[in-house]
Design a protein around this nucleic acid. Sequence first.
DNA 1: CTGTTAGCGCATTCAC
DNA 2: GTGAATGCGCTAACAG
Lengths: 333, 333
Amino acid sequence: MTTIYDVARRSGVSPATVSRVLSGRRNVDPELSEKVRAAVAELGYRPNGVARNLRRASTNLWAVVISDIENPFFTSLVRGLEDVAQTEGYHVVLCNSDEDPAKEAAYASAVLTEQMAGVVISPTSTAEGVQQLAEAKTPMVLIDRRVEGVEADTVLVDNEHGAAEGVRHLIDGGYRRIACITGPRRVSTAMDRLAGYRSALRAGGIKYEKDLVRYADFREAGGFAAMESLLDLPEPPEALFVANNLMTVGALECLAKKGLRAPDDIAVVGFDDIPWADLVVPSLTTVAQPTYELGRTAGLLLKDRIASPGRPPSTVTLRTELHIRATSAPRKP
Amino acid sequence: MTTIYDVARRSGVSPATVSRVLSGRRNVDPELSEKVRAAVAELGYRPNGVARNLRRASTNLWAVVISDIENPFFTSLVRGLEDVAQTEGYHVVLCNSDEDPAKEAAYASAVLTEQMAGVVISPTSTAEGVQQLAEAKTPMVLIDRRVEGVEADTVLVDNEHGAAEGVRHLIDGGYRRIACITGPRRVSTAMDRLAGYRSALRAGGIKYEKDLVRYADFREAGGFAAMESLLDLPEPPEALFVANNLMTVGALECLAKKGLRAPDDIAVVGFDDIPWADLVVPSLTTVAQPTYELGRTAGLLLKDRIASPGRPPSTVTLRTELHIRATSAPRKP
DNA sequence: CTGTTAGCGCATTCAC
DNA sequence: GTGAATGCGCTAACAG
């Protein structure tokens, strides 16, 4: 392996000067600078990033800890983050936590031992890793979910407002008996979206009925089961609000299996888009989140946090957007 | 920061012994070993991964270079890879090349300077980065596409066979005038799938017509445009085979926009699944690739390559699976 | 089985 | 504006 010493010898300068040239310092004689560049080219020299990292006591890696890259919500978010990372000279390490606090903690640990420059994380329910990273003062941006007792930059969407908007849309369509499938009680997004559902009911003068709410696991199978259980009610709902994309898919699959159709048998609004929601038939009404923007914003916040670790944490809340499609068509008289 | 020397002092042994204990070497007195562990716990010591990497002249990072994580084909593949990486003690760095040889080359460069342990890569058309990595003898696994003149472990699917099976299914359904939308001429998968299309036609005694083939860019917009152009033919096709998932979506959107329906107006078979293909209406017949398995297999090959760099490269070809759904229903008399 | 020693490749003092 | 010297934290030789 050719080192900075080889380049120095070849160009007749000291290693220090080579280092200065390569890291783009101004105060180097242009003539020497040119010699160094020539030597670098001739030798095919490539700086050793690991050595640089050791010396600088930090790497150019960002970790992104999400529950599952196969969920399109996170896929697009990661893409947004990676685009920022690339322009800022960082690389993104992908970490699937699978909602498992132990995995989250393991990744947090890796972030620390590998001296990664920062972390973007969607916390699991107990947020073990988040606590660990907060204590170590690692530059960190929380996405999608809040964590009690942790002060950190955070990027959220307006869950309550978005959910309320989706449910209001159903109410406006003439539906009264509206069910809700939400996520686990310990997850802030689940509770916020449920709160939006309740506030929309209240605003519409509809009584909240506990029986019409299901707490599932944000996964496809959970949505399927919850839908089944709702259909088993003595008086099944006329409409349904589902608090995330995967559970919506599960619910739709359940309906399809039972030979029921949206919106004729039951109207549906889902939180969070799915890819090609237009192709699903009937096309699916969703409360869309700006997923790419979420990732991008997180990246920008992380960059700022690394540049000025001292400044107070900020929270950015992005807006959702109601995409009205076919599954929420107004009720027929 | 507490170092290995602090732990050594605290536990009354040498740094070398601490190192031995922490890297799980057998030949250490259990008693000393215990002392070391105690000291580690007391001091909250955490090894410095970067220093370890410098010393070992290698990191525990794998790069995965794909064109776009937002394509579900790659999403699932990356997940498969990450699962292997995790069990083998590696982390995965996500690199979106966007089919841009320059980006691919930039990432290849990063792999080298950051001393990553290995790479899994889906080559762009010119495969600049691949050449670079091959020269540097970086452990590398090619996925999805072959590259002429590069000897490396490779994971493919049987594109020609899968495409032929999909097209044969259309022929069996009574369709004769079958169009094909494939990818760029320089990409091996595009040509292999086209070859499968041709061989199925031949086997079915159908004359190959150049006019019924379109070369697009493997993206949604490309599929849309190609579909439009096919519909503009004096005598439009009765059926269509599309060589990847995104173009299939584009083609379906084009049909929807024109008020045409599959399979009544035109039957459709797409190569590569899309998420929730069942929910698309009419549900989409696909030649499904084992995407997760592709990633997993690549991970296993990479692990082996790192363990024994000398052994001759191997190519693994996985089977596709025809998922017959509604868009390819037999032709009505 | 354990300790001493050296050096991985670089960036940064500090002199000049 | 430049060079010599130092050490980041660890692991692998080697000697004992």
